[in-house]
């Protein structure tokens, strides 16, 4: 990991761990982290590999149902969460292997078709999933003898899972594997010509993305002790897409910001005005039109402007770029 990433991760970890102490809404904050895991999984595919997945709710839903059902049959919490990550990864492996057979828009439509199939399967198989009523009455088991009924304690479990997941994604994007994913994004044919087995990398990325989404689904099920049918609904997939793009896909932090903004908007605006999705829709459309880098890019641009306001002598290093620009200016004047 590069030093910049190390500081970034340290700052994020500090914020995540201090959040419930600063603002006491642990349930909402846990929801933000769960949404961030989903957005992270989505962006692994879109931001890193350049594949728009329209079916992330499939993996979220499978993870949620898996945790719910295993908890009901008495599994310990961590084992159930692990099994959720595993089963969602397996589902993503299959969906990824089939979807990446298509190219371009066909591949996107395949992820969509599989999501709809999973949704209707969950809807019809109500003996298992509870159908439209959802899977109800899940008790949150204790972890190593520590009760998790207190929302703050549960928040710290979510935070730990989130930080581990995020750390892995950071390591992954910096690894050779991540470089291959970016090579596929930039030029798939060239990546193949160089000798990488592009399909395998794509499917592996799908499985990882599925594991993250499945974990998020499991954590969500235990947060509300309930799995709504919505967890596997295509609308949830579009929400995940919106979160990712709202924050921006250009950076690993973008989706986190998007997930946080989206979840907080959904919670606070929906109390003020039931029609808040109108504002969200307008915001989203204008981002797509004018600011494709999302809110993270907006923040970065503002940060750079602020940096430019600071007098040059106040900077730590001598600014090589600035000196070069000055030299060019001199030449132009001469």
């Amino acid at each position: 990991m590069r030093p910049g990433q190390r500081t970034g991760f340290a700052v994020l970890a500090l914020v995540v761990l201090a959040a419930p102490a600063a603002v006491n809404y642990p349930t909402l904050e846990a929801q933000v982290l769960i949404a961030a895991l989903l957005a992270l999984g989505f962006n692994l595919l879109l931001g890193e590999m350049g594949f728009l997945s329209f079916g992330q709710a499939t993996f979220n839903g499978i993870g949620a149902y898996c945790t719910g059902l295993l908890i009901k049959s008495g599994w310990p919490l961590l084992a159930a969460l692990g099994a959720s990550a595993g089963s969602a990864a397996l589902a993503a492996l299959v969906v990824g292997a089939l979807s990446t057979q298509g190219t371009g828009i066909y591949a996107v439509m395949l992820t969509f078709a599989f999501n709809e199939m999973a949704y209707y399967a969950a809807f019809e198989w109500s003996d298992l999933t509870g159908g439209d009523n959802g899977l109800r009455g899940l008790a949150r088991p204790a972890l190593w003898g520590v009760g998790l009924a207190d929302p703050r304690r549960y928040y710290y479990l979510v935070a730990a899972v989130f930080l581990v997941g995020f750390f892995l994604v950071l390591r992954l994007t910096a690894s050779p594997f991540g470089h291959v994913l970016r090579a596929i994004r930039e030029n798939e044919h060239r990546a193949r010509a160089v000798g990488y087995r592009v399909r395998r990398y794509k499917v592996a990325a799908f499985a990882l993305s599925g594991a993250l989404s499945g974990l998020a689904g499991g954590l969500f099920a235990m947060l509300y002790q309930f799995v709504p049918l919505q967890a596997i609904d295509f609308n949830t997939s579009t929400d995940i897409v919106i979160m990712g793009l709202l924050g921006g896909t250009g950076s690993v932090y973008g989706p986190l910001l998007g997930a946080a903004v989206y979840t907080l908007m959904a919670n606070f605006l929906s109390n003020l005005w039931a029609r808040w999705p109108l504002i969200l829709g307008l915001l989203f459309c204008s981002l797509v039109m004018f600011l494709r880098g999302g809110l993270w890019e907006l923040c970065a641009a503002v940060w750079r402007r602020l940096g430019a306001l600071v007098p040059r002598s106040g900077r730590r290093n001598s600014d090589a770029g600035g000196r070069r620009a000055a030299r060019l200016e001199d030449r132009g004047a001469a």
Partner: peptide, 8 residues
């Protein structure tokens, strides 16, 4: 993405 926003 634009059409998704338009749906909302």
């Amino acid at each position: 993405l634009f059409t998704l926003g338009a749906v909302l």
